[in-house]
Write a protein that binds this DNA or RNA. Structure first.
Lengths: 342, 342
DNA sequence: CCCCTGTATGGGAGCGCTCCCACGCCGGGG
DNA sequence: CCCCGGCGTGGGAGCGCTCCCATACAGGGG
């Protein structure tokens, strides 16, 4: 029942014996205020426990100081992965730093998606971070078209109608480094369990793999490439196909650690030793990778930095400079984590 | 630059040839409006692409329609776990349904924590969902003290000064079912790798384990209990201790799947077969559990439902009824997932 | 000694909405 | 036929803030 109201700027002003404008100036540090006045206002704020009302401020400034992180991938696929958690961590840190809030939005059904689009175009957020790994997501274009500042996590799969800022991880380079490692280990019949062809990450990792092969003058035999769905079981299945088509393979590059685990299982079931008979390199550097038997050599992705860069790009460029800012692409490097599997 | 302003309620009113009040009534469906008028207003809204301004509404209603999800655990520990992702999913779904927004807040440093407390007490959100697994977190009491509606995920470890709503998963029952399974399998020297003693989940799972033991008339030998930190390596370490102190044990209940993986590794290193020599049951039902060798018997937690219940409790009780609502506790059941390890 | 410039400050206007009071109109009962 | 009640509606007030114009005062130059 207390029903006591929070103190307002007006009350602070009266208490400090100044005008509202002055208090506002002190809070926003904008224009010059004499030291004495400033102190008096500060004291009044402290005594009253005053906290500015965001809604009131937003109403006049037309800025909400809120940024949405939209995960439009079926979350089942994304949330559990360190990929997502790293991004949240990085985003969160930078945003906090800038005094911005993080609104987390997920859309499962198409209706959700529709509503989310309306909402985000409605001016309720200052900008949107979009982690949308699939090609057919209409949200980026829709938001960009509505003039909402957007930064993508991961490169756009097709050239979008409205050019956008994005932050990506160098999947091509990362995959190349994985395959190169296999080549340097003396392997010659190197297979790959690639990711889904409709995801940029899947495409790029396959390309990196092929580049490394070409670099070494190794043929890119079609029977040595199978597509998986980034899952454990998908990896196991793909490996079985691979083994059927090319029983003499001596190495595998799996485009995700989850798939690598499936590969490992199938390999073991087939009686092959890792890395003696078949060397294996994964991708993602998940927690599990360090604990497999043998421990998995894999490619580490700077997910937290990715989140940080996304937030930075959004706040400092997309929002600050508006729709006329030149679209920027930030691409982050990976790091090969050498363990025992390959 | 376009700089075109979004349509306002006033513009809708003019276009529909009615007063602002009427438009507001149509939007909020509150009071009665004649069908004709309603249709006219709807049409005007559609034509203009009008979206209500949340800030303006919040200013007058003093509600923000925003709920914060606070993860005050070091995220390293929490984010990667399906536990967290399930909660987010459940929370998100219910909130969307209620027209509420999800503000995700994480606090790493003590300063963050302090600031977060100020922020959340400042009336910027209508309520707070708190997933804070540690005992020494001052946030719940602080917020409850400030009159902010709060729902905890996980039971409060100590009786809080301000009684709070919470949603918990039946850790005691879940652990008991795990240990009971071991007992029914004919095991008699059943060890446990317990969780941290300063977490409610850790305590409760240990208690459940002991209850099952007592139920079966089995002694609770001190050398059969070791505490781990919920991590893989922690589990491996704990298992080594256990093996030193009680080499004759014939079963292990690990209070988390991550720890169970470590246990599994140590067991294999010691030359013991699972489940022939030592049966093993884990807890959490992580993705990895299905793919270990042998596949891990474990306890599934309804994390998504937990998130949903938290959101529901917050929206329908804590916020709706205010601080005088009788504190409610919702406890959800677990499900034993029987695979091959025990 | 006055004017002009610049700095510090007060406070009106107004952001877009909801709340609520007041008003017009209708029909039924007296 | 008049009055009263109630429904449907219009619009003033005001939420708490920022913006900006106006004002006040202090100095320095003419």
């Amino acid at each position: 029942m207390g029903e006591e109201r929070r103190p307002t700027l007006e009350m602070v002003a009266r208490r400090a014996g100044v005008g509202r404008g002055t208090v506002s100036r002190v809070i926003n540090g904008s224009s010059r205020v004499s030291p004495d006045t400033r102190e008096a206002v500060r004291a009044a704020i402290a005594e009253l426990g005053y906290v500015p009302n965001r809604a009131a401020r937003a109403l006049v400034t037309r800025r909400t100081d809120t940024v949405a992180l939209v995960v439009s991938e079926p979350e089942e696929r994304l949330f559990d992965q360190p990929f997502f958690s790293g991004i949240v961590r990085g985003v969160s840190a930078v945003l906090t730093d800038r005094g911005l809030q993080l609104l987390l939005a997920t859309a499962r059904t198409a209706a959700d998606h529709e509503r989310l689009g309306d909402y985000l175009s409605g001016g309720h957020v200052d900008g949107v971070l979009l982690v949308s790994l699939h090609t057919d997501d209409p949200l980026p274009d829709r938001l960009a078209g509505a003039g909402v500042p957007v930064v993508l996590g991961g490169r756009p799969l097709y050239p979008p109608r409205h050019p956008v800022h994005y932050v990506d991880i160098d999947n091509v380079g990362g995959a190349a480094s994985a395959t190169r490692r296999l080549i340097e280990g003396g392997r010659r019949r190197i297979a790959t369990v690639a990711g889904p062809a409709d995801m940029a990450a899947g495409q790029d990792r396959l390309r990196g793999h092929r580049e490394a092969l070409a670099e070494a003058g190794l043929p890119d035999a079609p029977e040595l490439t199978v597509h998986g769905d980034f899952s454990h079981d998908g990896g196991a299945r793909a490996m079985r196909e691979l083994l059927d088509a090319a029983p003499d393979l001596d190495a595998v590059f799996a485009a995700s650690d989850d798939m690598a685990l499936g590969v490992l299982r199938t390999l073991r079931e087939s009686g092959r030793r890792v890395p003696e008979d078949v060397a294996l390199v994964g991708y993602d550097d998940t927690a599990a990778a360090a604990h497999t038997d043998p421990p998995l050599t894999t490619v580490h992705q700077p997910t937290e930095r990715m989140g940080g860069e996304m937030a930075r790009l959004l706040a400092d460029t997309a929002i600050a400079e508006g729709p006329d800012a030149k679209p920027q692409a930030v691409v982050l490097d990976t790091r090969l984590v050498v363990r025992e599997s390959g």
